[in-house]
Design a protein around this nucleic acid. Sequence first.
DNA 1: ATCATTTGTTACAAACATGAAACAAAGTTT
DNA 2: AAACTTTGTTTCATGTTTGTAACAAATGAT
Lengths: 241, 241
Amino acid sequence: MKKGTILSVDDDENLQTVISQYLEGDGYKVVTSANASCALERVNNGALDVILLDLVLPDGEGLTLIPQFKEKTSAAIIVVSGKSDTTEKIVCLEMGADDYLTKPFEMRELSARIKAVLRRMEMQVNNNDNESKSESPDKERIDFLNWTLDRAQYQVFEKESGTSLEFTTGEFQLLEALILSPNRALSRERLFELTRDGEFDVYDRAIDIQIARIRKKLVDENNEILKTVRGVGYMFVSKSS
Amino acid sequence: MKKGTILSVDDDENLQTVISQYLEGDGYKVVTSANASCALERVNNGALDVILLDLVLPDGEGLTLIPQFKEKTSAAIIVVSGKSDTTEKIVCLEMGADDYLTKPFEMRELSARIKAVLRRMEMQVNNNDNESKSESPDKERIDFLNWTLDRAQYQVFEKESGTSLEFTTGEFQLLEALILSPNRALSRERLFELTRDGEFDVYDRAIDIQIARIRKKLVDENNEILKTVRGVGYMFVSKSS
DNA sequence: ATCATTTGTTACAAACATGAAACAAAGTTT
DNA sequence: AAACTTTGTTTCATGTTTGTAACAAATGAT
């Protein structure tokens, strides 16, 4: 559920309230500061993921805050400005901001930009990982028994014939989750976490039905690919072990 | 290495030294003038890219210099002022300045503003280039099925007949994005990022409509070139897989 | 064997995603 | 300004996906 912590730096109290409520509804934790000094203190205080920074603050130029933030945290910085000025925008980005947003803006847009910025950060992390590690942690294609799971295409192929089986996205994600933890029993709860993004009011046995639907498509006589572990959940058994 | 020549007009000798050193470290060539007459002379003397102009000079009002500079050079003018005065800023911009910076400032900010201003100028130049040149020298062509995507010309050609299909720029860019990641399902969000530059206040399904329009033009009976991946997005399928 | 619990199966309806058509708004060209 | 192009928005119909309920089958314990 927790998607990240956001610090909003702005001296407009009303705006702060609106932002907080909206973003909290989105699943973020939100903290606010009304001025520069308070914000700097907060940055030292703990892990932040995104900083929303208004350039016009009562106690000093917001622009100079950007490099200071950059020094102390790896959080993404989204500048919120009253002016729609191309030069200022470029300057902000040049100084280390990650995005620039002009007031007034819609909450939906703010939310989208935060999401985009977080994703970009995540991608960077992943890329760095790939560079340092010789083996990529998440493979795009995963072979299992007579099939291949293609995570880029969201498809399952039959190895020999090469034909693709018609999996729905939901079925695919469940199978993917199981295959990524081979020979390990996963509870229905865990599987829910892995496949659905923050849903709660669902039927206990939705997973069971999904499993049944997958099995119907992944037929392999005596071999039970998706084993049910009574009282626990389900498990993908790979022959290698 | 050479990024441009900058003329700094200011009578503060210490500041001039600091500016010169910093900007030279950035790869610029820097020349300085301590007063207006000297600056005007220097402007006649050779190609400049950026002029940093302090408004308070020993021999005359700096404001009146702006139009004089504009007449003689196409360099960008960044006004450096001791006062943080909105009215003065607006007047300067009205008279032809490209940016306005308040003392004291950080070198990093100055550097960023110079970069921004140069980039803006360059963009203008490029746009003019495109208008004047009808043919682009480097053609990057990508073949797919019965068509060829010409990224230089922003056109799609039918391989056999050689006729070009009428794609709008938006349609072209979307198709391009999909083709550049073949056999990979791309979410609408991702496609948005790839094709639009920082727009968010748009309809969720704008991509869908664009896809439909592309499909209408790229007809190939049984072959689904642009596959929709339900619950995810769209994918360009290349025959190789 | 009998019972209780857990899981598999089927059918169904609500929710959802997508494509198509028509419209509207913004931008361009003439 | 008018015609045209491009692109976003709305609406509707259709088909898919998935949660739910009900029941049958399987499993394990006593």
